[in-house]
Design a protein around this nucleic acid. Sequence first.
DNA 1: ACCTTAATTCATCACGTGATGAATTAAGGT
DNA 2: ACCTTAATTCATCACGTGATGAATTAAGGT
Lengths: 212, 212
Amino acid sequence: MSPAPEAPKGRRGRRGAAEDTRGQILAAARSLFAEHGYEGTSLRRVARHAAVDPALVHHYFGGKEELFAASVQLPADPARVLSPVLQLPTAQRGEPLVRAVLGLWESELQPTMLTLIRSAIGSERQSALMREVFRRRILTTLMTGTDFDEQEKELRAELVAGQVLGLLITRYVVRLEPLASLPVDEVVRLVGPKVQQYLTDPLDLGPNGNRD
Amino acid sequence: MSPAPEAPKGRRGRRGAAEDTRGQILAAARSLFAEHGYEGTSLRRVARHAAVDPALVHHYFGGKEELFAASVQLPADPARVLSPVLQLPTAQRGEPLVRAVLGLWESELQPTMLTLIRSAIGSERQSALMREVFRRRILTTLMTGTDFDEQEKELRAELVAGQVLGLLITRYVVRLEPLASLPVDEVVRLVGPKVQQYLTDPLDLGPNGNRD
DNA sequence: ACCTTAATTCATCACGTGATGAATTAAGGT
DNA sequence: ACCTTAATTCATCACGTGATGAATTAAGGT
């Protein structure tokens, strides 16, 4: 009720130390980009969400593109997350692969991951980018150590990508309900084997081994 | 070179009959929404793309929301596309299910489908909508005729949804390359069996039946 | 031939957008 | 105590957005 002297509406100039405005802006941006995507998020909204003057967003980040880039910057190279999986023989990569990917999503990186997947699918331009990233970083490594011909390697890697992507979307984006709340271990047990099949089994093997 | 009298820049009033302006606007909208999503597409851009005055968009559709709704209106109820599949016993639904869904995407509905999937994933609001649709329309029907308990039915339906969604995204949205150009029959043979496994096989069966 | 009605254009609104630059204030090193 | 430098606010731009309403022209029934 009293006109709080600690929050003087429009006092200019520098504030008390250690308020980490930059951090607050970044946090707000991460959350809003994750929820509404790039186009659906305005700088002013980010500023309001962070309780900060819009001009500060420019001050710290330079512009919307840069803010987005910063929001999506990963602290750890995701390739490194996958590398332990690649040490294993192909015949045992299914479950560890799923586990590694889920691990990324269960961490504090989840909003970032959400933003990445949302924007990667949201428009043609971004999808093209994803296509390239996949070609360059995933495909080449995922199937190392197998002796399928090139074409088959690519196809298998893409089927794996599809299975994993679908899992991520149903669990973390759309959040369908039993699935979304299942413990990681269980999801790994459910989906890991299918990934393994795409990795190494004969390619059109029926359900439960249909030999007829 | 000559100042074409057939295309008089700013002549007002009604045009020659049978130009189907409404149709052109709708077509432009479908294509642009499919490519850039809802937020990324402006009415003026649609108008320019259809070579038409922006006010006409309002004249015919009333506003952006309505234009979007009209762009996404499906000529056939997708539930009817699935219903033949549901006639079959659960043990044989895998491949037909995949084939039915792919059929939808290989038709002239593809841009509409693209828009639907893009917007459904693009923002939290839309994702929530998708969650509801799935609950109401897919889940209940997909597992009819099995005797798993309720929880397991839901989980299986969601795993199927994930597998199919992932396939659609890699093939039609991101268009990863061997996969995107594969004939439908082949994709059905590749993915159908996995769907079948999610539908009916014991839930954590390993690759190629790992009994060890 | 006439008249209603639909299609089209134009001018214009109010608003939110991303962006910039100057003015102000405090922090923090010296 | 001083001075540079960083953080913050404010005013302001130019522009694109979705939207509306009046004015104009032809279509098409009678």
